[in-house]
Nucleic acid binder design. Structure first.
Lengths: 234, 234
DNA sequence: ATTACTAATATCCGAGTAG
DNA sequence: TCTACTCGGATATTAGTAA
């Protein structure tokens, strides 16, 4: 990230011009847009939009053909690379931003499921410890929840297989390893796992945390305490 | 993507200011940077850097404490959300940019491995067809290769398990489903799979493609022909 | 319709400097 | 040292047009 592969101030507008152009890439990799339309997209005048397209061409970020009156634009590999690098840098940035959750009293459902033998044995084997037979429920706000889901997409879950007994079926559970700690106590990070249960899409952005110890005691937690969740990359 | 969650021209510089600030987030989520240093990062004067930080605070993208002379900055959830949304939009954009490869004569190694029973039976079962007993080798340039690898990170592979016989061990293979076609023949897309073989990191950005048919015949390919590779999202 | 030039105007930047 | 003000000069934008 520290290599100088970044956008300079004189290209801020050009970056956003390319970015907005890229949103209009058609299946054949061509962009059909007039300078008037593009001006509306960029929220600038037609003249500025036209100048932007000229500048992008000079930079080698796009190529274009002026066919009669209309123009056909294609993004060059250099242009695609500009987008890719910003994407990669943002990914790194998001890695460094932690998730905040607030302790909630759960209805105890998580604890019940964890302790079922069909699940518990797998937790032991695949997580490498004997988890406490209950989960810590954390409430996230929308921004934190969106960020968490995006982070989880970049990680491979430890999958606990579903099974069935005489009564019913039990669905698979995806576990994502993480570290849990109080914001003021960074030296007491606890290894834990976020459980993504197939069916029970918790309403209200609540996630369930599994750990070896009883986290409420270990971290002296009461409801509404603020907790930091750090995803462990794999 | 069409919701208006995007950056307006008057905030181009502010976006990049936030972006560059975020690169300096420390483990405790705090940013320690003076306006002189930040000016160097942004390649502007100290005065402009200072104004940027003020503007970011007014926008609610950061909070700060002026402790004596030094400032401590934290990115707000709104600020983190700006970064997240740009990340997500770039991800969508990259989805729409296809990979270009050029047909290469392989050394035939791929074909040998595919036809080994321990692999072939799994290909049949997991891909759902009887693949041609050979692979199409495609050469990518660096930009295409970087983009391909990033796209593959966002997909779950179909994993062909490794095995061993009397002679030796055979490593696992990750398959990523894709569509292959000639740039001028978009209506003749062929379902195929990119093979990521554990050990043999192909030198020179060469990837191996597996498909049901013999693609060289079906698509009338000769060496150096241009081929489009479209990753199928899962 | 287009794209894009020129000239007028609006905006932004940084030197000087204060607190 | 810090942050951040004012203000003149630099830069960017757009209205009016041409092609």
């Amino acid at each position: 990230m520290d290599e100088d592969n970044d956008i300079n101030p004189e290209n801020y507008a050009n970056f956003f011009a390319l970015y907005n152009l890229c949103k209009h890439i058609e299946p054949k990799q061509v962009i059909n847009i007039s300078s008037v339309e593009f001006g509306k997209v960029l929220k600038t005048s037609q003249q500025t939009a036209s100048r932007r397209i000229n500048d992008l061409e000079k930079l080698g970020w796009i190529k274009r053909k002026l066919e009669g009156k209309a123009q056909k634009i294609v993004v060059t590999k250099l242009g695609a690379d500009i987008m890719l690098r910003m994407y990669q840098n943002l990914k790194e940035i998001l890695d460094d931003i932690v998730i905040i959750g607030y302790v909630q009293s759960g209805i105890g459902e998580g604890g019940y499921y964890v302790s079922i033998k069909g699940y518990y044995d797998q937790f032991q084997n695949k997580l490498g410890y004997n988890p406490y037979k209950g989960t810590l429920n954390l409430k996230l706000n929308d921004a934190n929840n969106a960020l968490l889901n995006e982070k989880l997409k970049n990680n491979k879950p430890i999958t606990i297989e579903g099974f069935e007994d005489q009564q019913r079926q039990y669905g698979p559970v995806d576990c994502y390893e993480c570290l849990i700690y109080r914001p003021d106590k960074m030296d007491s990070k606890q290894k834990a796992a976020i459980l993504k249960i197939e069916r029970t899409h918790h309403k209200g952005n609540i996630i369930e945390i599994l750990a070896e110890d009883y986290l409420r005691d270990l971290l002296h937690l009461v409801d509404d305490d603020k907790i930091v969740i750090e995803i462990i990359k794999n």
